[in-house]
């Protein structure tokens, strides 16, 4: 299946979807505010505080052991300072995205989706640190949102997507390949269309589009490789959407591993076995974070 026709199909699907959630008003205002040249963090915080659910979710995301702040961050303003102005946009978009899709009505269980997403965010941040990538927060957020297109498939193409999931159950077939074959497009193209609609920054759009093909990335191939590898690791430990896909990989043959080793040769010495075992140990933290994010609105 060629990329252009998959992109056309995705565009058509996303454009024709009337009830696709839109960005909440407060988030839109936050995005406008941070575009102002003389914006102050206090003003952004004041605005965000008018949305209690968003505030609570930002606080949970930042204070979880999954994210590992050095000290507990007790106020939204501190959280925003910690993240830096450059990341407020993504955090606002990500929490909005969580708000928009917080009802379990799709083919996949939402908690399994978010556990995978935050798991990949956590691992991406660790990998980013290991290779000396300059922006750990960016890696965290890119990891969280990489599978955005899956939510669309699960919620708006419920039956078709369920059929795809059923067809690969227990078999060594990649979900992304089965999507391409059976739906004529994949969560990568659909996610990209959604991310464009929501005005996610370009580097994140690229991660969404290229997280299965990091060597095709042009804006930030390192970031795409980080998310790709983190996705693979989560898929073989227990952050794998409840085992919906049977993934296997030979690490040295992965293009992302090569890209990251070129960037940081000492990665070759990484204790991959220990990394997997430590990842197993961090899973309860990820589950705890996801459940706390979803009780934040109650």
């Amino acid at each position: 299946m060629d990329k252009n026709s998959m992109m056309d199909k995705a565009r058509q699907l996303v454009e024709n979807m009337d009830d696709l959630p839109t960005i909440p008003v407060v988030a839109t205002q936050v995005l406008q505010l941070i575009e102002q040249p003389d914006v102050r963090i206090e003003d952004v915080a004041d605005l965000m505080l008018t949305d209690q659910v968003m505030t609570a979710r930002v606080m949970k995301m930042i204070n979880s052991p999954v994210y590992k702040p050095e000290h507990e961050i007790t106020s939204l303003k501190r959280a925003l300072v910690y993240l830096g102005l450059r990341h407020i946009r993504e955090v606002a978009l990500t929490t909005s995205f969580i708000n928009a899709f917080d009802e379990d009505k799709g083919a996949m269980e939402l908690s399994a989706f978010w556990e995978h997403s935050f798991g990949v965010g956590m691992v991406s941040r660790i990998m980013a640190k290991k290779i000396g990538y300059q922006d750990l927060e960016k890696a965290y957020i890119a990891g969280i949102i990489h599978d955005l297109g899956e939510v669309f498939l699960s919620n708006f193409m419920r039956e078709e997507f369920q059929a795809v999931l059923d067809s690969i159950k227990g078999k060594p077939i990649k979900l992304v390949d089965a999507e391409a074959q059976q739906l004529g497009t994949t969560h990568c193209e659909i996610g990209l269309c959604m991310a464009h609609k929501w005005n996610f920054p370009e580097a994140y759009c690229e991660v969404i589009a290229q997280h299965h093909t990091p060597s095709d990335a042009t804006i930030d191939p390192i970031l795409c490789a980080i998310v790709n590898l983190s996705d693979l690791f989560c898929s073989v430990r227990e952050l794998n959407y409840g085992g919906r896909e049977w993934v296997s990989f030979n690490l040295v043959e992965e293009e992302a591993w090569q890209i990251l080793k070129n960037e940081s040769p000492k990665l070759a010495e990484m204790d991959v076995e220990r990394f997997c075992y430590d990842l197993d140990d961090a899973i309860p933290d990820v589950k705890e974070l996801v459940s706390s994010i979803f009780t934040a609105k109650e």
Binding site: V236, G243, W246, N250, E273
Partner: peptide
């Protein structure tokens, strides 16, 4: 299931699968 050969032999390659890995 909880073992590791890290640092024991650098010729084997790790192949990962859900819930474990093997050496190729």
């Amino acid at each position: 299931q909880s073992e590791s050969l890290h640092g024991v032999n650098d010729k084997f390659k790790t192949v990962h699968f859900p819930g474990g890995f093997t050496y190729k």
